[in-house]
Design a protein around this nucleic acid. Structure first.
Lengths: 211, 211
DNA sequence: ATTATCTATAGATCTATAGATAATGC
DNA sequence: ATTATCTATAGATCTATAGATAATGC
C-alpha cells in the first residue's frame, strides 16, 4: 500500500507509530466530509496532536492526502476486480457503478480521489508505480467487460475514469445516485444503430481484441 | 439580463460605463480559462484599471462572477430552446449535448456555471427571479423531450442539471467530449427492458403526461 | 543520546477598504 | 461639485518551519 519509501526506513518509535495512525485516521474522517479542503490544523486537533507532529510524519499536505487517495483507489479497484471474478461482466459492472454512486454520495474524498487520478494532482514521481499498476488493472477490467459485450468498445481507460469522475460530480450536484449511475451504465452499453443516430458512434468497437 | 437593480440607478458617467464594460470583458476572458479562481487583481490589470475600480462596480468577487454566470446560463438555455423549435426533440437534444460538450471543453467558466447552478453558490436573493425563470424554462424543454420519448420519464430537472455538470467534469477529467456526450445521451433514452437488467429502472416513465 | 512533539509565528496568497487624487459634466 | 479612480495596505486564511521542550529506549 505504501510505496513512498526507498531508503531502509528504520521502524518508528512506539509513540510515533501510534500518532501516525491517529493522524491518518483523523485525516481520513476529515477527507470523507471535506475532501481536499481539509486543514492541517484540524487534522492535528482531531488527532489530539500539534501541527508540527503532523508535518513531521507528512512533510506536506499533499503527502498526507496521497496516502488517503491511494488507499481509496486500492480499495475501489480491488472491489471491482472481485466483482468481475464472481459475477458475469454486465452484472459486475452494474453492481460496481451502483456501489460507487452510493459511496460517492457520502464521501467527498472518494469523489476527489477520482478527480485527482485524472487531473493534475497525484502526479508526483513517488506514486508513479502505483499509478501504472492502477492503470493496468483498470484496463484489464474494462477490456474484459468490452469483450463480453457489456461495454462499448470505443471507450478508453481515460474515458472510463472521466465518466466515474463525472458521475461523482453529478451526484454532488444533486442528481439521485441510483438514477445517475443507471444513466451512465445504459450509456456505456454498445449502442444499437437506430433512428435519430446521425453520427458520433462511427468509431464503434474500435478497441476490442481477443484475450 | 441584469436583474440586480431595484432602485432607479441613474445612468453611469461615460468613462465609468466604458470601464464597466472593460471589467466584464476582462473578467470573462479570465473566467473562460480559470473559472472561479480568477483573481480580482488580474481582472483589474487586464482591464487596465486599479482594483479599487473593479470593486466600485462589483462590491464583491461573487457579484462579478454572478454577472458572468448569468450571461452564460442565458445563452445556453436560449440555444436549447431555439434548437427545440427548429428540430425534432431527439435531434435537438443530441445537438445540444454535443454543442455543450464542445463548449465546455474550452470554457472552464461554462463548466463552473453548471456547477454553481446546482450547488450552493448563485443562491443570493439577487438572482432568485432569474433562477426561477431558468428552472421553468429547463423544465419545459425537458418535458417536451420526454413527451416525445427522447428522454426517459423518470428524470427530474435536478438530475438533468446534475448530468450536465457531470459531463463537464468528465471532460475536464480527460474524457473525449464527443464520446462523453454520446454516452450520456444514450443513457438518457428510455431504457428498453432486456437482459442483464435486474433493477434500477423500476420507476420507469413516472413523470410523463400529455401536453 | 536520540527521536518526537509542542507552541508560536513567518510567509504566501487573496479579498476588500480607506483616503488621497483625478476626471467628468452641469 | 460630483462621481470615479488609484495606490497602498489592512485583514483573513492557510501551509509550513524554527527552536525550545518532552518522551522513549539502548
Amino acid at each position: 500500500m505504501v510505496l513512498t519509501q526507498s531508503p531502509p526506513t528504520r521502524p518508528l518509535r512506539a509513540d510515533a507509530r501510534r500518532n501516525r495512525e491517529a493522524i491518518i485516521s483523523a485525516a481520513d474522517d476529515l477527507f470523507r466530509t471535506q475532501g481536499m479542503s481539509l486543514q492541517m490544523d484540524e487534522v492535528a486537533q482531531r488527532a489530539g496532536l500539534g501541527v508540527g507532529t503532523v508535518y513531521r510524519h507528512f512533510p506536506t499536505k499533499e503527502a498526507l492526502t496521497v496516502e488517503l487517495v491511494t488507499y481509496r483507489s486500492e480499495t475501489v479497484i480491488t472491489q471491482a476486480e472481485d466483482a468481475l471474478v464472481t459475477d458475469a461482466p454486465a452484472v459486475a459492472i452494474r453492481g460496481f457503478f451502483h456501489a460507487m454512486a452510493r459511496l460517492m454520495s457520502e464521501d467527498v474524498g472518494l469523489r476527489e480521489t477520482f478527480k485527482m487520478q485524472s487531473t493534475a494532482d497525484l502526479q508526483g514521481e513517488s506514486c508513479a508505480y502505483f499509478r501504472q499498476d492502477l492503470h493496468e488493472r483498470k484496463l484489464a477490467i474494462m477490456q474484459r467487460a468490452q469483450r463480453a459485450g457489456a461495454v462499448r468498445g470505443d471507450l478508453g481507460v481515460e474515458d472510463f475514469d472521466a465518466l466515474m469522475c463525472g458521475m461523482g460530480q453529478a451526484i454532488v450536484a444533486g442528481g439521485r445516485p441510483e438514477l445517475i449511475a443507471d444513466v451512465i451504465l445504459e450509456g456505456l452499453r454498445v449502442p444499437l444503430g437506430d433512428g435519430a443516430d446521425s453520427k458520433g458512434s462511427d468509431a464503434r468497437r474500435a478497441g476490442v481484441d481477443g484475450a
